[in-house]
């Protein structure tokens, strides 16, 4: 195992969930969650209360997050076209950081 592989294996995953206002990745963030596997258990860099960590999904890409999943476009079941439930436009990002020391 070379040194770079060992370094990568030492990294820990952080996961960012962004729910956007439309299916487009550059749409505004309307909800978010963050999970940190590095052991730091710190929130994302602080912004003023109530503001998401990024204005839109592209801003997360620009900050180094990698998109790993986006919500599929699924038509509503017949007869259930007007139901509202979970947020529709969900994007999952990841990045890898060194573990807390």
């Amino acid at each position: 195992m070379d040194e770079s592989t060992a370094d990568r294996r030492a990294l820990r995953q952080q996961v960012l969930l962004l729910c956007l206002k439309t299916p487009e990745l550059d749409a505004p963030v309307i909800a978010w969650s963050f999970h940190d596997g590095s052991g730091r258990r710190e929130p994302l860099p602080a912004r003023s209360h109530g503001r998401p960590p990024y204005d839109d999904g592209v801003a997360a890409l620009e900050d180094g997050w990698r998109l790993v999943q986006m919500a599929p476009a699924v038509p509503p079941p017949s007869g259930d076209e007007h139901r509202v439930a979970f947020l529709k436009h969900e994007f999952v990002f990841e990045r890898f950081v060194p573990p807390a020391t």
Binding site: L17, C19, V29, I30, W32, S33, F34, G50, F86, L87
Partner: peptide
């Protein structure tokens, strides 16, 4: 939604 199934949203604008 059913009970805590919306717990995936830590923050909502």
């Amino acid at each position: 939604v059913n009970e805590a199934d919306v717990g995936r949203y830590q923050h909502v604008v």
